[in-house]
């Protein structure tokens, strides 16, 4: 039963992935002109000159003279069959050289934020639902609303400002200077852990607030369900009853929310990274978009989207595992 469900979900993903690749490539094609135009105008602004033949050569080399559909076809087949994401004009390196490290860190931050969000939202949500309309509930609700109202980047700015004025230090970056370019090691990993919590809190705040509200509303509903009464009539203690029945049921919508939280966390990571200047996709994507470094920008958007869709799939499977009613449908 379960495998049937998994297969169906996997098959349905194929058109989604295809659509993502088209949209990603389409978006970076939207601006008038291409990277060469930007490149030439920068060159000319610096007083340089470039001949028509050179331009033609460059166009040929980067296949910019071919129709968009052909460009897309070559790009996507390159990715699927050779893992080749194209050439970054900006970095003068293959896109995949720039891509993976940064995508990896982006997802490390996003996943860490996801864990943070759930670990914080769960107990608060349960507390708020059980002690509905208590002082604590009101306090958390207000904090939650506040968290929803403060944009990520503003929170980042305030934290940076606070750290700078009160501690005289900068909180940007994911690594200490000595580890910035170092190869991966345990020491570098621990250094990452020491830095990652600041962006994680910044990125996670809004989602945490949202999830607390979801947990609170769902659990408050479940608490009034007849099966709770059945369990109580059986003689189950209140604490055990709460965790085993209503919380277990309220967990389903809570978990299914992963699919919606992940995209927003990835979004939050992008913008927060730009403010905090983290070595993730955000800053590079912004520059690539501005300079029309199309393969780089397109690949970034595509990979971020695809990984998010996969994350959503995982959360759906998790939900099916949690809830027999979905699995047997």
């Amino acid at each position: 039963m379960l495998s049937n469900y998994v297969i169906r979900r996997l098959v349905f993903m194929i058109p989604t992935l295809l659509a993502i690749s088209i949209v990603s490539f389409g978006i970076v094609q939207l601006p008038p002109g291409d990277f060469l135009d930007t490149y030439i105008s920068t060159l000319e602004a610096d007083g340089g000159d470039i001949s028509g033949i050179e331009i033609e050569n460059l166009k040929k080399r980067y296949r910019l003279d071919e129709p968009v559909v052909v460009q897309y076809w070559q790009w996507i087949t390159g990715i699927v069959f050779a893992g080749d994401f194209g050439w970054s004009f900006q970095y003068q390196r293959p896109v995949s050289d720039v891509l993976w490290d940064r995508v990896g860190l982006t997802f490390a931050i996003s996943l860490a934020s996801l864990v943070f969000v759930y670990v914080v939202a769960f107990p608060i949500g349960v507390y708020s639902a059980v002690k509905k309309y208590s002082v604590g509930d009101y306090a958390f609700t207000f904090l939650g609303f506040l968290g929803l109202a403060i944009p990520n980047f503003l929170l980042a700015l305030i934290l940076m400002y606070g750290a700078l004025t009160f501690f005289g230090q900068s909180v940007g970056g994911l690594f200490s200077p000595e580890f910035a370019e170092a190869p991966w090691s345990w020491a570098r990993f621990w250094d990452l852990m020491a830095h990652i919590w600041i962006p994680v809190i910044i990125i996670g705040t809004a989602s945490t607030a949202g999830l607390i509200r979801i947990m609170r509303a769902n659990l408050a509903d479940e608490l009034n369900k007849p099966y709770v009464e059945t369990a109580r009539a059986k003689g189950v203690s209140e604490g055990r009853l709460l965790m085993r029945y209503p919380v277990r049921l309220a967990l389903n919508p809570f978990v299914s929310q992963v699919g919606w939280e992940l995209p927003s966390l990835v979004s939050g990571a992008a913008i927060t990274s730009i403010v905090l200047n983290l070595p993730t996709t955000g800053p590079v994507l912004l520059i690539a978009l501005k300079s029309q470094d199309m393969y780089l920008a397109g690949s970034f958007i595509m990979i971020l989207s695809i990984l998010t869709v996969i994350g959503t799939l995982v959360s759906d499977l998790l939900l099916a595992w949690l809830d027999p009613r979905i699995r047997y449908k």
Binding site: I27, W260, A270, I301, T308
Partner: peptide
């Protein structure tokens, strides 16, 4: 809904 909005908007 599955596409992260900020990268999409940025693009």
């Amino acid at each position: 809904k599955a596409i992260p909005t900020i990268p999409l908007w940025m693009g």
